[in-house]
Design a protein around this nucleic acid. Structure first.
Ligand SMILES: [Mn+2]
Ligand SMILES: [Mn+2]
Ligand SMILES: [Zn+2]
Ligand SMILES: [Zn+2]
Lengths: 150, 150
DNA sequence: ATACGAATGCGAATCAGTCGCAATACCATT
DNA sequence: AATGGTATTGCGACTGATTCGCATTCGTAT
């Protein structure tokens, strides 16, 4: 399901830092990784890379279309990256546990295009983030409320 | 159309800085204001406020539900604020001229709720930003392309 | 007018991310 | 395999946006 990414095919020479960051991303497809996550992953499991290089390589990857950058978290500004090999999707973020659920809704996707067309606007990109409380946290909330009542 | 905002009703004492920031926001409902925009507006038209106070007051307003904070601009992290007296709406941002168009689509709004309900998630907030090129910039683009051909 | 807590002004600090530049690594060519 | 020129890296310094600490001042209820 994950297409093997070849740096050369993306117009990037294969250097040690780039391969390391790519490996870090491929080893963590289940999560959205901050630059710091990548940094720490490499520090622990591979060889350390300076943060500036991590950022630089991620920026190169973003330009090459290998990764996508998001900023969830309406308050904080920390950015996260994910490999772009899967299909486009939007995100649902739990404001309690920070977990992120991915989804794709064809109705919303196509409606967006209709909206912009009606305004002579051409769409290049979009970001839809839903914020709320996930099923797991909701359950925990209910439990602790009950506990307080005792 | 703009409901007069009363600080006391929002649980905030009426201090000079707070009234000044509120006036700045009310005088600029047509745009989304950065903290710096507010700072400069007050510097020029009113009395100067330190940036830290501008930020603090905007944060207080956000908590009180008087303003809403957004971060458009997928790359940069600069945040902007707008008075929350109008109805909820989403944003369409021109990546050329940075102009922002506001819209509200009932279909998308209700679809979002359906999506989260199906997942036992409870929705507290959302942000939908469409990025692209506005009609005006599109026209200018076409013109300059023609000019190059000559 | 007084007193107390809340809010402000000031500058220092933080935080994420970027930049300049000398040292190094790639890679095509001998 | 050595060479050379370019692209990339490592390092630290730097930036811009935002936040914090704390002494001072303001707002409000006596
Ligand atoms: Mn994702
Ligand atoms: Mn708006
Ligand atoms: Zn959760
Ligand atoms: Zn435009």
């Amino acid at each position: 399901m994950i297409a093997k990414i070849n740096l050369k095919e993306q117009g990037l020479t294969e250097t040690t830092p780039r391969l390391a960051v790519l490996k870090a991303m491929e080893a963590n497809t289940a999560q959205h990784m901050s630059a710091d996550d990548v940094y720490r992953y490499l520090l622990e499991r591979d060889r350390p890379l300076p943060m500036s290089t991590v950022y630089r390589v991620l920026a190169q990857f973003e330009q090459a279309g290998i990764v996508e950058r998001h900023s969830f978290d309406a308050e904080r500004t920390k950015q996260v990256y994910e490999l772009k090999d899967s299909e486009h999707h939007d995100h649902m973020i739990c404001i309690k546990c920070r977990s992120v659920h991915e989804f794709l809704d064809p109705q919303i996707e196509s409606r967006q295009i209709e909206i912009v067309e009606n305004l002579g606007f051409s769409l290049t990109d979009h970001s839809l983030n839903l914020y709320g409380i996930c099923a797991g946290c909701d359950r925990k909330d209910a439990q602790s409320e009950e506990a307080i009542k005792q």
